[in-house]
């Protein structure tokens, strides 16, 4: 088991290094950063000074080397706009984004799995058809437009929930989150639901497909032949088997929740790192863009690693293979 985790970690680090190179080349070498960095009225002396200071006169390989050394020390450059370390700005906003993404995931799983299993168990019933039709709709609706509809309906027309910003936060068990206050929850609900909708559809589809496949297996019929109740068959025999693909996909797609939160955060003015990156792209604030991408790549690689390890815990067949 340990060997398996070690080997996977090593692979992750390699992917991380390759991606850092791509991001570095992509953002720093396409276009001329000097144009963006330096005041157009600066004289040649000033320009040369900044170029030297940033190391832009050195070979590309060397530049990348210094970029990596700085990155390992937690220095991903300073924001042009805020004048503060890019990493610090992103870390500051990360809890808000994580809270949004996790809460959305919670909504997607807690509604998606029961609905999907139901639709898989009774594929011809009216309710199942409605569930599946809604999931195609949820799959097709662009996130930002759903967000607008939610704001129009719940904030403007009904006035039930606030439409912008993050609410009060409170700290329990060392976690600072808005889920601990009523005001925080009321601010969180609309954006989280918005972000969850897309994932909800895919969880429903996965759970339904898994259920329809597993329910036909001999081991389900054998479980019935043992005289088990339908409840235990669904909760233990069915659910444990369909959870493997669902956990894999959810884990891998948690990253896409964070990516899509850029849209939701913009619509709901949620003060997370997604809104920060959109603003940074507007303002050509490259250090922020680079830092954001590096963090996202790190998150993705880590998620992949966690999913692989969890997968081996859920599926005993993989676990054994991983050891040998």
């Amino acid at each position: 088991m340990t060997a398996f985790i070690l080997r996977r970690s090593l692979q992750s680090i390699i992917v991380l290094l390759v991606m850092s190179l791509i991001v570095f080349v992509g953002v720093n070498l396409v276009g001329d950063p000097v144009d963006m960095l330096i005041n157009p009225e600066a004289d040649q002396f000033e320009i040369d000074r900044v170029i030297r200071e940033l190391g832009l006169d050195r070979p590309v390989a060397e530049q990348y080397w210094y970029f990596m050394i700085n990155a390992f020390q937690g220095d991903l450059g300073r924001s042009f706009v805020f004048g503060e370390p890019a990493l610090k700005l992103i870390i500051q906003r990360m809890p808000a984004t994580m809270e949004l993404a996790l809460f959305s995931l919670f909504i997607a799983i807690s509604f998606g799995i029961p609905l999907g299993v139901y639709a898989g168990l009774k594929p011809t019933s009216k309710i199942s058809r409605t569930i599946m039709a809604s999931s195609i709709l949820g799959f097709s609706m662009p996130t930002f437009w759903v967000g607008i509809i939610l704001i129009m309906f719940f904030s403007v027309n009904l006035g039930w929930l606030p439409s912008t910003g993050r609410g009060d936060v409170a700290t329990y068990f060392g976690i600072t989150s808005s889920i601990f206050t009523l005001d925080g929850l009321s601010h969180l609900f609309l954006p989280a639901f918005n972000l969850a909708l897309f994932k909800l559809s895919s969880v429903i589809r996965l759970a339904r497909a898994g259920t329809r496949e597993v329910i036909l297996q001999d081991y389900i019929k054998f479980a019935r032949a043992k005289g088990l109740g339908e409840g235990r068959i669904i909760r233990v025999h069915l659910l444990k088997n369909i959870m493997i693909p669902i956990v894999t996909v959810i884990g891998l797609e948690f990253g896409s929740l964070i990516a899509f939160s850029t849209v939701t955060e913009t619509v709901f003015a949620w003060p997370g790192m997604g809104k920060l990156i959109i603003d940074a792209i507007y303002n050509l604030d490259r250090p922020i863009v680079v830092a954001y991408l590096m963090i996202i790549v790190l998150i993705f690689v880590t998620l992949n690693l966690i999913v692989d390890i969890m997968y081996s815990f859920l599926d005993p067949r993989v676990r054994i293979k991983g050891v040998s």
Partner: peptide
């Protein structure tokens, strides 16, 4: 493909 499309497009 392991990166979401919105992120690729933003980059």
């Amino acid at each position: 493909l392991s990166f979401p499309s919105i992120l690729m497009a933003l980059v």
